[in-house]
Each structure stands twice: as structure tokens, then as C-alpha cells.
Amino acid sequence: MQKSIVPPVNFSDRIVLMSTLLFTALIWLGSLAAGFFGALTGLGGGVVIVPLLAIGFGVNIRYAIGASLLSVIATSSGAASAYVKEGYSNIRIGMFLEVATTLGALVGAFLAQKIPTSTISIIFGVLLIYSALISIKPPRPSTSDANRDRIATYLKMNSSFPTAEGRKEYFVHHVPAGFAMMFGAGTVSGLLGIGAGVVKVVAMDKLMRVPFKVSTTTSNFMIGVTAAASAGVYLNRGFIDPGLSMPVVLGVLAGAYLGSKALIKARTSVLRHIFSLVIFILAIEMIYKGATGKL
């Protein structure tokens, strides 16, 4: 293949000469790191992919969101096989709430085409700050409530999960409120291209009183389906670019796999703080660039 002179590419605010090969390699490395730390801290890689592409590589935020959504599907589906064997996830809670998250995802994906990119950037920044705060101070697991809720009983959501002292029963509450919040989680996911796992866990754990471990695994289970609902819209609107999505998906997937392997050995509390700080800085940058119209 003959060497050709590459035209200038807008790299952030500077002009840098970069070939597709180098661009792909750098994005793969960045996505690898995002997937690795995302898995290690439990925050997921999606929250940093969009800022990484938009701020770090000057990629248009719509392309960045499309690529990020795909990486979310990949990690959620890849991790599910490990989770389901442990017997925590509740397929009925997951499936019922997916009605809300997929409808929300359609609304979010629809809004993403209407809202200016600078506004999306600011909303993203605000959500990043929320994620960083939750990560430093994880919500205290809610206490179980033995009262039976009529709707949850009708929907066969009450179940049990494995503990050290054998299987423990739990009862689900406040289904309509949880359903409404899940619709919101789906909208956020479709609008910003992230899994919105934080919102899903809060809805299940805090509102519906589902045990924390069941909430996190069921949330992971739902994330892939939610992201697929908005990914369909993004694909049909031309937001999914193969050249960009390829290194993002492969990088995040490899990083998340390595992260889940390293999870057993790592001191996650220190990492969590560092990762939260990174997210916080990215959040400020996203809000600033959004407000000044640079994204």
C-alpha cells in the first residue's frame, strides 16, 4: 500500500496529523483502560467512553454515544453469563421492568436527535457527577421488609437468593414507582449512550426494596436489552460508525474481561476514589465545553 500524505485532523482543539491506524490503536487503548477500570470499580466503562471520545479525540458526541451504546451491550451481555450462575438475578423483575426501560430508551434515543449536542454534553456532565458521588459513597443496602405487596405478588416478583445461611426470601415493594424510575433510567441510557446501571440499582434497591446483590445483577441483565432498544434507533439514524465503534467495542470488551479477572486481587476502595476523581474532572470538562458551545 502506498504512503499518502494525510490531511489534518481536528484533534481536540489542536490540529494533529493522524492516520486511521493510529487513531484506531489509540481509541482501542483508551477503551481498554475504560473497560478495565469500569469493571474493577463497578461503574461500567460506558460513563467514560463518551467523554474520552468527545473531549480526548474530538469525536462528534452523536458518534461517541452510538459507539458507547454498543460497548454497553457487549459488557452487559458478556458479564451476564458469570452472574446468572450464582443465582442472584431475578428474571421476572428484570423482564417486567424492561417494559419500562425499553420504552424509555426509545424516548431517549428520539430526544438525542432533537436536543443540541451542547445540551446533551451538560446533561452528561451532571450525570457523571452523580455517578462519581454514588461511587464514593455507595448507597447503604436497604433492609428487607416482610410485608407482601399486592402488585409484586401478582407479578410473581418475590423470590429468594443465596446467602451464607442458605436461601433467603425477599419481598418486592413499590412496583409502580420503580417502574416509573426505570422509564427514566431507560431515557437516560438512550439519550447518553450509557448503561445507567446506577439509576437502575437505586430504583430496585431503594424504591422496590430488592436485596442489593439481586439489584446489581438484575440491573446488569437489563442493561443490554435497554441499550439494544436505543441502538436500533441510532443505527437507523446513521449514528453508528463502523470505523469508530470497532476499536471501542473490542477495547471495552477486552478491558472489562481483564478487569473482572483482576477484581479478586485489587484494592478497589482506593481505585474507586481515583476513578471517581477522573469522572469528576471529565464531568466538569463536559459541562464547561457544553456551556461554551465547544462540543
Binding site: M1, K3, S4, V6, P7, P8, V9, N10, L17, M18, S19, T20, L21, F23, T24, L53, F57, G58, V59, N60, R62, Y63, L235, N236, R237, G238, F239, I240, D241, P242, G243, L244, S245, M246, P247, V249, L250
Partner: peptide
């Protein structure tokens, strides 16, 4: 995706990408 990536990079590897402006993908990719 990996197989496609190899074919893609051998064809487009030394051309500069531009993702700054949103143009939307061509019809055959959407």
C-alpha cells in the same frame, strides 16, 4: 467485528479519519 476491522484497516489504515462533524452514515450502513 475483529475480522471486519482487519479488512478495514488494510484498506483505510493510512487515510485520516474525521469524526468532528456529524454527517450520518451512508444508507447501506444504517
Amino acid at each position: 467485528v475483529f475480522a471486519g476491522g482487519i479488512v478495514y484497516l488494510t484498506h483505510f489504515g493510512d487515510i485520516a479519519p474525521n469524526y468532528k462533524f456529524f454527517r450520518g452514515e451512508p444508507a447501506d450502513l444504517r
